[in-house]
Design a protein around this nucleic acid. Structure first.
Lengths: 240, 240
DNA sequence: CGTGTAGTTGATGCTCCTCAATTTTTGTGG
DNA sequence: CCACAAAAATTGAGGAGCATCAACTACACG
């Protein structure tokens, strides 16, 4: 998003920031002085809702941009999940320069446009489908963004994932456990944050509602045969 | 969003379209030839999902813009809910002109930026909270956008609202009925689409989770007093 | 009138939440 | 280093909320 060369060519100051895990980059309501890009590490963007709830709108990883506000104030809060390196550029200077520099103004447009893409994609993941679908999609997405040597090292806690999907952390935990029991994923550490996807095909099926499809056909068969019995686990992941 | 004067000054062609209710403006996957703005009427933007589901991303009313794609193809489908008048401008000509015209490029940027605002706001409404909260927020929003002489004439069916929130149409219908029974809203026609908000204060409380708050305190009191009794209706709206 | 569409309402049960107990990890001070 | 407390994650029991299936009403249109 932020291009060092382009910005310094337009005489806009760039600042390198280092943030420790847990630090807040900016808070909702604060004056929007900078626009940012993640160089290293992970952060999340969220808003507090009435009733002590928190809605996480986005997880931010290397090369993601954030803080591109339209108004003069930030509409959400950004916090670091891990130690991070972040690039910041003065917002006012950038906007002023963009008014006469087509390259910069194009940069701003594509930043906003790709933020829109991400927002709509996130909204779809967050709003639609069962818990299993959501978590499966989440893991596939995280694999693309984070995997190193076939291993995903999740920087966020169960609670963050829960707030991202509007679920409870217990439900998230149970879904991870179910995927683990079905041998679709494995854990590589005791906190169960380092994850390996063992059966990507099954995970993809679950992500695009194969679960619902299979489950319901199983249920229908069962109904037709009048066999009310259910599998032992309350939290069996769909399929087989 | 689209400014007739600005566009004709830049020599970009503008087309006036009239669409009947139910007509499709463009489909997902089609080449993005135009960008649009609603002049009159109502439309909705949606995507089909695996499993015969439909996710409505946005309802579009007068002055809303749509079709501002980043890639060369439309990523969703837009259909008219009522008879509508829509303004269209050539996308390629606009993008070319924007490359050298700061005014136009600024127009594009603010279009994308406000689309982002809307997308994030919609995502929040759609993802967070109980059915009652969602419908209450929806009605308040529709009042702002659609009300004439204190009356909201909803252009969409229950099914559209359900697909917007990822609910079933039955659940939506029950929630409307509950609001009606509680005398928070009234219906002005037999289809129950012309709606009057009678008690806006209560509706606002419900929208910002007063329902949860009141309900749970009631439940807690009930638990403490060990009175397991429940109110008659399964679908009572929160609060007294 | 029959047919189709939109909407309401009821019974039943799955999904996910709530509350609670337990285990493991992390951080802190002696 | 270990003891202790706090945090993170798992797991279980029970219940609320919403989905599913189905029946029913009301209106529009040929």
């Amino acid at each position: 998003m932020i291009d060092r060369k382009l910005l310094s060519a337009a005489n806009i100051q760039i600042i390198d920031l280092s943030c420790a895990a847990g630090e807040t980059i900016y808070e909702r309501g604060a004056l929007a002085q900078f626009v940012y890009a993640v160089e290293e590490g992970a952060l999340f963007r969220f808003r507090l809702l009435p009733g002590c709830r928190r809605s996480i709108q986005q997880f931010l990883f290397a090369s993601d941009g954030f803080g591109y506000e339209i108004g003069r104030h930030h509409r959400d809060t950004v916090q670091a999940l891990t130690d991070t390196k972040v690039l910041a550029a003065g917002r006012d200077a950038l906007l002023r320069a963009a008014a006469s520099n087509p390259l910069l103004s194009n940069l701003l447009f594509s930043a906003a446009a790709s933020a829109l893409l991400v927002a709509e994609k996130n909204a779809e993941i967050r709003c639609v489908g069962t818990v299993t679908e959501k978590i499966a999609q989440f893991l596939l997405e995280m694999e693309v963004r984070l995997s190193k040597r076939g291993e995903i090292d999740l920087p966020m806690r169960r609670h963050h994932i829960a707030d991202y999907f509007g679920l409870t952390l217990e439900t998230v935990s149970r879904t991870f456990s179910a995927l683990h029991n079905k041998k679709i994923i494995q854990f590589r550490d005791q906190r169960q944050r380092r994850i390996v996807i063992c059966d990507k095909r099954r995970l993809r099926e679950l992500a695009s509602d194969a679960s619902i499809f299979e489950e319901s056909s199983v249920l229908k068969t069962r109904k037709a045969m009048n066999t009310p019995e259910m599998p032992p686990g309350q939290w069996a992941v769909g399929g087989t």
